[in-house]
Write a protein that binds this DNA or RNA. Structure first.
Lengths: 261, 261
DNA sequence: CGGTTGCGTTCCACTCAGCGGTACGCTCTT
DNA sequence: AAGAGCGTACCGCTGAGTGGAACGCAACCG
């Protein structure tokens, strides 16, 4: 009975002892920015024996979850297909698309659809045109809640328990304007509930502004998703789009209530 | 050394003997239409012992690939996130979005982005507004090549070898107007290469028309993707959008050539 | 150029994770 | 009450999975 270093009782599942755990560790070793990773890099990131990574990665290739290129491994199209079968986010995406489309056409700025997952925002969709602001968000990617409009509005409608959980946790400073004072943030959340929109002013990325509105569940309290419009400092005036975003989010909310629930 | 029934040398990987194989079998048991499947249904579809499915599914839940609800299992958001990290389709999607957006705005009809995978089309993106035609296509879904505009144009630029492979294979009749005569189809492919667009006239779904154009690789011969516009019989005139689709696809093609390649 | 470093790949004997048949308890029908 | 169909729990056997070690190959370098 030896003591394993990972027995710190932390985090989600850090299961290096099952085949599945190893496989997932390898797949998740790919960050949002990585495209191909050589075997050695996978070994470094997963902290698994070289031989093991080699074999499991080989199996993953056989199962169409990885592609093997001359320069290393790459997440494969099979994974893309599989991921887009995820029921919840997919129906949300499909039902939301028309509303996002309208919103884009009205604003011609980058439009986001996101949901809360744990203490972060996950982007379900991102649509934009040629002159879109260069936002760090990516479809399927994550961002902290406290420094994005989408995150703030989702948190605002997530219940008191979430508020304190996030506000007492560490609030990473992303830019000089990131709000990391819990009291200030709490005030913003309260306003978001009152006004039905949240703003972001260069809090996650310099030069970016954002408005977001919640897509509320039938109960009218909890948010199942949120919609936002993002634009660059200068031409973009968030306030002038508040109504459009609010309307889109509300419309999507009642569509969800009517259909899939 | 016993003979296993699956040793027929057929198909991709039908590996029920490794943990990974079982896990994938369970995940892939979810069809595009399914949202939640009860344990028993998974047992039926995967043809695995009940105890095994129960355990593996439990592991998958632990790893955030499945969600467990009161009524059964469901593909989880973790899978969605993972899938959207697939490098190839993701960068394609991101670079294409502005062009698809433009195309939608010009036409206000359903716009598709697809790639060829094996002998089928995989949809990378589908965008449409409120009055979009009810097409069976879904993001991440598949369709045969011979009965869709997207498929035909992708096949047309896939090389002689693919042509014969598809044309000699079985051509499923989806609607009364599906073209299943190899000779006729070959003619359409030839024309697609000459004109730079392919059409579909209620060949996959009654009431639907479609135009598609290829996104060509720098070599100008092979297609890396294709873009299409779909609309309902009646108001929709495919020919009138041919130029717009062709232009969008060409523009995306040169963008791809310039950037990521 | 030998030497070194880092890579991908292959091999193989041990062992415990995974296996799946069996059995149980529950909720609906009939 | 009996039956059908479901999800869950148990447990002894075993071969799939393991990972340390060794190999061949480029690149880099003093």
């Amino acid at each position: 009975m030896e003591v394993r270093p990972e027995d710190r009782g932390e985090g989600p599942v850090r299961d290096r002892d099952t085949v599945l755990g190893k496989a997932l560790a390898i797949l998740r070793a790919f960050g949002p920015a990585d495209s191909v990773l050589p075997l050695a890099e996978l070994v470094r990131r997963t902290d698994l024996p070289k031989g093991t990574v080699h074999r499991v990665a080989g199996d993953l290739v056989r199962h169409r979850l990885l592609d093997k290129t001359a320069h290393g491994y790459r997440l494969s199209g099979g994974l893309f297909e599989l991921g887009l079968r995820a029921a919840a986010e997919r129906t949300l995406l499909e039902l939301a698309m028309p509303f996002l489309q309208d919103l884009y056409e009205r604003t011609h700025e980058t439009v986001h659809l996101g949901v809360r997952e744990g203490h972060e925002v996950v982007y379900i969709a991102k649509i934009g045109g040629h002159r879109q602001a260069r936002a760090p968000s990516r479809t399927g990617g994550r961002m902290p809640m406290h420094c994005t409009a989408l995150g703030k509005v989702l948190l605002a409608h997530a219940g008191e328990q979430e508020w304190t959980a996030v506000l007492t946790g560490p609030l990473e400073r992303r830019t000089p304007r990131t709000v990391i004072a819990p009291g200030l943030l709490r005030g913003q959340l309260t306003r978001a509930v009152e006004t039905g929109v949240a703003y972001e002013v260069e809090e996650s990325t310099p030069g970016l502004l954002c408005v977001a509105a919640p897509v509320l569940a039938p109960d009218g309290r909890t948010a199942v998703a949120a919609i936002s419009v993002t634009g660059p400092v200068g031409r973009f005036r968030p306030e002038s789009h508040a109504n459009a975003v609010r309307a889109a989010a509300a419309a999507l909310g009642s569509t969800l209530a009517r259909r899939g629930h």
